[in-house]
Amino acid sequence: MKLDELTKGVFKYNPIFYLVLGLCPLLAVSTRVDNALGMSLGVFFVLVSSNVIISLFRHWIPSQVRIPCFIVVIASFVTIVELFMHGYAPELYGRLGIYLPLIVVNCIILGRVEAFASKKPVFDSFLDAIGMSIGFTLGIVGIAVCREVLSTGKIAIFGYTLVPTFTQSPSVMMILPPGAFLTIGVIMALINYRSIRKEGR
């Protein structure tokens, strides 16, 4: 079942809530929905391209030096994203700051390349990467929506206000670091609650 490779990253093995990978950019960038979208685009491009490239070259990379090889491939794609974003979306580039180059050390990417792409054929790796990035996007955008609504009372994507005045008395704490930890803790507890109830049935 080829489709399984795609969907497992979205729900069953969601990289954020199930595998708990890639937390650093997730919590730091989820202050606003548009930052979160920009970050997930970057992760999507890097993950898909490195998974495909590594999978293509998997028979030629000697296993002793595989990690440095992976890192070089990933870092090259991250540099491409950096240059591209700097050129076409300088404002977003400025807001993502050091977290954009830090995609290199994002454990989702190295994890998927090491655990999946270095062993499986190209098309499977391609699907796996797409599924994992959709899972990542769902997680980061979900957290960003919670934080932005609670901290500013509305959601604005690239200047367009989507949800006007959700609350009259927003809590600034949610946009600050504690809010990030609080949001992901509560979301994870909700997911656990659901699976516990499912087991009980």
Binding site: G185, M188, N192
Partner: peptide, 23 residues
Amino acid sequence: VPRSFQDLPIAFISAALLALAFM
């Protein structure tokens, strides 16, 4: 700790309180 908060979720909540203190 409530069952759904066990292990990681409660660790995240503690980290939130820690971050609040550091602020």
